[in-house]
Amino acid sequence: MIGVGKAKQYANVLDKPLGRGRQEVSLSAFAFLFSEVVQYNQTQVDNIAELERRLEDAGYAVGARVLELLCHREKGNRRETRLLGILSFIHSTVWKVLFGKVADSLEKGTEHEDEYMISEKELLVNRFISVPKDMGAFNCGAFVAGIVRGVLDNAGFPAVVTAHFVPIEGQQRPRTTILIKFAEEVIHREARLG
């Protein structure tokens, strides 16, 4: 694609096709940047709930952009309109672009009809992070929860998305579960569409 002399000249930058971009960035660079994001936000808040909200908001902006980009790049300018479609789009396409792999699992909540869970044994953003005991159940995965909410919201599926640590038996480290609770209207619309 970037062969010397082969590059086509485009008069208008908008005519130029969107390249696939470099597929990988340095994990260390990301880890340091993310660490700084968390540290900066920590200085701006008084409590943990607010920190969680700020990280989520940061992720939301990423999600909104990622949806736009991937619909164009991967889906020929179409986006998913059905609930399961958009969920598997997040689980596979979005996850693959952002984290280099498909998410470990996508499940439907057993207790509530409107709840879905994306679980990851070791979330990339948490790879180097140890949350101190005094911060309780705080999970930096809130950033990823924000990304998921950003994608869903902009695709027309408003939802409340939260990140939780879930202990696994026989493992020292808990996994992270992204819990998605869809708004009532989304569930009604799905039921109508059948």
């Binding site: 993310f34 660490s35 101190p132 911060m135």
Partner: peptide, 9 residues
């Protein structure tokens, strides 16, 4: 360097 310096806390 991995688990201490990259930890925001």
């Amino acid at each position: 360097t991995e688990f201490v310096l990259k930890n925001p806390f």
